[in-house]
């Protein structure tokens, strides 16, 4: 195992989180070190000397890893925000619009104080979740022109997404149960259109947190 291989393995170990961005970054780092080693070898150094010089120029793992970690975490946060937006947008259509799952369970909303409270809460939580995801999406992309975006932003995005992904389905299922008209078909619809998509958001948020 060459010194460059050892270095790249150490760098990989120092960057937790989703593998796709990390893989790209490490590939670029590997290409760079290969080029730098070749340049030093062409200048007359032995392979071992050339690798040592290339690694010295590149920077120690302690110096380089924080920047790579920020990049991986921000990319993961951006993906989570995109996913949350994509999952949230059809929810209004599913519940209040064309499909109207709530009315399918019961044509008239139950005369329950809890149901009405949850109806208001889910509207606010849904709106806040969507707006937060759109802001996070903007900040982790074009927002980097003006704002210092790092792991703190990624952590905030992931926490926000995770909370939304847990609260909305719990309230949604509770409301369906409160209608008193929950059938197997409706339960399966809720699983397919609500629980499964939000589970993906939660998984993505957890991966983002792991990268922070």
């Amino acid at each position: 195992m060459s010194a460059v291989d050892v270095y790249l393995a150490d760098l990989r170990a120092a960057i937790p989180g989703p593998s796709w961005t990390r893989r790209d970054l490490l590939r670029e780092a590997g290409d760079h070190l290969e080029d730098a080693t070749a340049a030093y070898t062409a200048a007359g150094y032995t392979t071992a000397e050339a690798e040592a010089l290339a690694l010295r120029d590149f920077g120690s793992v302690d110096d380089i890893a924080p920047g790579f970690r920020d990049t991986v975490a921000i990319d993961a946060a951006r993906r989570t925000a995109i996913l949350l937006v994509l999952v949230m947008i059809p929810q209004a259509f599913l519940w209040d619009g064309g499909i109207d799952l709530g009315a399918s369970a019961h044509s008239v909303a139950p005369d329950s104080g809890l149901f009405h409270v949850l109806d208001i809460v889910i509207a606010y939580v849904g709106t806040a979740g969507t707006v937060g995801a759109v802001i996070a999406l903007a900040v982790t992309a074009i927002g980097q022109r003006w704002l210092p975006v790092g792991r703190r932003t990624a952590r905030l995005t992931a926490t926000w997404s995770l909370a939304t992904a847990m609260v909305v389905p719990i309230i949604g299922f509770t409301m369906l149960v409160l209608t008193g008209g929950l059938t197997v078909i409706l339960a399966l619809c809720a699983l397919a259109f609500m629980a499964a998509p939000f589970a993906l958001v939660a998984l993505s948020a957890q991966r983002t947190l792991a990268a922070c």
């Binding site: 780092a29 760079h32 590149f58 920077g59 920047g67 927002g143």
Partner: peptide, 18 residues
């Protein structure tokens, strides 16, 4: 500067649309 610092900067500039 450590040359490795360039790669996060490149990725940031790309995501910023530059």
């Amino acid at each position: 500067l450590p040359t490795g610092t360039i790669y996060p900067a490149l990725r940031r500039l790309e995501k910023a649309g530059y």
